[in-house]
């Protein structure tokens, strides 16, 4: 079996596991186990992203999705209840909404370029510019940004304003959580 086929098989296996985990979570009433399974879901997602050559996203998914988010949900469970209430009656409307939305999304993917397609618009527009600017040896181009990791160069330099905005958003989110969640007595604990 070639390396490509093995990767393909692993991706399919991961996707099947992801679907299985998602369905299990949806059917579960025990919230503690459900939270653990969401952690596993994130971890599977991170593995999948790693196979798609997106280690940055995989890092984030593993640390935030499997680590920090799992903890936050466990912390919330400790404050509320461990079991979800049984649903009041059954309705087919939500299922229909999900199926229609899912089908629309899948239909949309038919128009998308294939994964890694060189002719895809995303790879024809500004990407060659970024590559020749950032990586000194590509096309023999001179290095404008001088940072070999193109993702970092784009995020921090070309899209510097966006990243500044994102940092401010994270900061604001933290301030919001502090305002909502901190008890008055925390001041004394600190000192």
């Amino acid at each position: 079996m070639t390396a490509g086929a093995t990767t393909h098989l692993t991706v399919v296996l991961l996707l099947i596991l992801l679907i299985g985990t998602a369905i299990t979570i949806a059917r579960m009433r025990d919230l503690w186990a459900a939270v653990m399974l969401t952690g596993i879901y994130s971890f599977l997602g991170a593995s999948w992203m790693l196979l798609l050559d997106a280690p940055d996203v995989a890092f984030t998914e593993a640390a935030v999705g499997a680590g920090i988010a799992t903890f936050l949900m466990l912390g919330t469970l400790a404050l509320t209840s461990r079991r979800a209430k049984a649903p009041q009656g059954r309705s087919l409307a939500p299922l229909a909404v999900v199926i229609v939305t899912g089908a629309a999304l899948v239909y949309g993917t038919f128009d998308m370029p294939h994964y890694g397609d060189l002719q895809a618009p995303a790879h024809q527009h500004v990407a060659p510019e970024y590559l020749s600017d950032g990586v000194p040896h590509v096309q023999g181009g001179p290095s404008k940004v001088g940072v070999p990791n193109v993702v970092t160069a784009i995020l921090a330099s070309y899209r510097g304003y966006d990243t500044l905005g994102e940092t401010v958003v994270i900061f604001t989110a933290g301030i919001g959580v502090l305002l909502l969640m901190r008890r008055p007595s925390d001041r004394e604990v600190k000192q």
């Binding site: 940055d56 890092f59 984030t60 070999p148 990791n149 993702v151 970092t152 921090a156 994102e166």
Partner: peptide, 11 residues
Amino acid sequence: HGDFGPGGGFQ
């Protein structure tokens, strides 16, 4: 090492 390898400040 974010300028050479994967990752950066957020990660």
